[in-house]
Simulated assay, not measured.
Amino acid sequence: MNKVILFSESTIDIPPELVAKYQIEIIPLIVNFEEETYFDGVTISPDELYKKVDEKKMLPKTAARTPLDYKEHYLKFLNQGCDVVHISLGYNFSSTYQNAFLARNELDDELKERVFLVDGKNLSSGTALLFLKAAKLRDLGKSAKEIAEEIEKIVPKVKTQFVVESLEYLHKGGRCSTSKRFLGAMFRIKPMIVVRGGRMDVGKSVFGSMKKSLNEMLKLFLRDFPKIDPEFVFITSTAADKSYRYLEEKMQELPETKQIKNLFHTEAGCVIASHCGQGTIGILYIMTEDVPENQL
């Protein structure tokens, strides 16, 4: 059986030590500030991105890699005798899946059959959760085809939710009107962003302090806990140290969290951060059953 390569984009938002441990191959997406082009996590860091946004008073444009880029990466592994499982950033969030699909179709028939493309229907560490499961299956000796089939079953079970501290980046990116931003600042509105059916939506908005919003997210986590797969849980944030410390402290006080086998904290990369801004934080996990599309 051929060696299996696990492959994704930089939007996976997984800590470098886990990338190395689980041998995950990552292609960086593109961050453009007018005429300046950077590669997410390679030639620009989140801290550098925040600084540039402050200096230029504008958000960057992010871009997927081209079909040719994907084809070249696939061929690098295929020519080494490896099979590829590519779990992509969700179809509805970017053209990454479409470009990867085109790249796969440009391969010779024999090579094409060794590339297994999965729409992760998620973003950030929601995709990372799928990769950790895929790595476990690979290490159990499963083939690329078997891994892809199992991951397809897990995709609808991933629960992704973030609290956005400020509407500034959403406003600059055209996802929030000026009036909503003004009202959000006045009433200290913190939207809770959720992924439902492969799409991003506002689950609810919490009025008041960030702590109040974090407590609301913890309530939802505890509600879900009896049906949570305890193997992997992520807390993912964007320059939200204070919120992370608060969330970590509260979670350590909960008897339920002692059942979590691996609780990871990671910082979101530049592409994700450019859309939600600093101060965003979320809890991401896998359920034991499909997440209802109408559930917060």
Rank of each mutant, 00 (worst) to 15 (best):
N99I: 02
I235M: 15
G279P: 06
E256A: 15
E35A: 07
E165W: 05
T238N: 13
F182V: 02
Q98N: 14
L222Q: 12
V291H: 07
L59S: 02
I189E: 01
S243L: 03
E17N: 12
E48N: 12
L75H: 10
L137C: 07
G282T: 13
K261P: 00
V4C: 11
R175E: 02
I14G: 01
M58L: 12
G174R: 08
M210E: 04
A134C: 12
F207Y: 08
M210K: 14
I151S: 01
D40P: 04
A100R: 00
K261V: 02
V155W: 15
T236F: 05
A185C: 07
P292L: 10
D139G: 10
T127Q: 15
I272T: 12
D108Q: 13
S10E: 05
L18G: 03
N262I: 10
Q295F: 09
P292F: 04
L137A: 11
G269N: 09
V118S: 08
E293K: 15
F131Y: 15
L68V: 11
I26P: 08
F116N: 05
L218Q: 03
N294M: 12
V163F: 01
K153I: 02
P60F: 06
I281E: 00
I193F: 06
D54E: 13
E113C: 11
F182A: 08
L75N: 12
L137G: 07
N294I: 07
L89K: 07
V4W: 03
K56M: 11
L102C: 03
G174N: 09
K172C: 03
E248N: 15
P255A: 15
H265S: 10
N262E: 11
T127M: 14
Q252P: 00
Q98I: 10
A144F: 12
L102D: 09
V155K: 14
V158W: 02
I44F: 10
F264K: 07
I228L: 09
V42C: 06
S209C: 07
T178V: 14
L123C: 14
S10P: 02
K242W: 05
F39Y: 14
T257H: 11
S213H: 04
L132M: 14
G90N: 05
F7H: 05
D40C: 06
C82S: 12
E55C: 13
G81Y: 09
V118M: 11
L130C: 08
E168I: 00
L68Q: 11
Y246C: 04
A148V: 11
Y74K: 03
P230M: 09
T280L: 01
N262T: 08
S205H: 06
E110Q: 15
F39A: 09
P230L: 10
A20T: 11
E256Y: 14
E289P: 01
V202L: 01
G41F: 10
L129P: 00
F162K: 07
Y285L: 05
K51E: 12
Q295K: 15
L222A: 07
L107W: 03
R196E: 08
K57G: 06
Y169F: 15
V155P: 10
V85E: 01
C176W: 00
G277Q: 04
F225Q: 00
R196V: 04
K180C: 00
I27Y: 06
G126R: 09
I281H: 02
I30A: 09
G81W: 08
F116L: 13
D13C: 09
V195F: 13
I154W: 02
R199L: 13
D229T: 13
S166Q: 10
L214K: 02
K56I: 06
K211G: 07
I30R: 14
L296W: 04
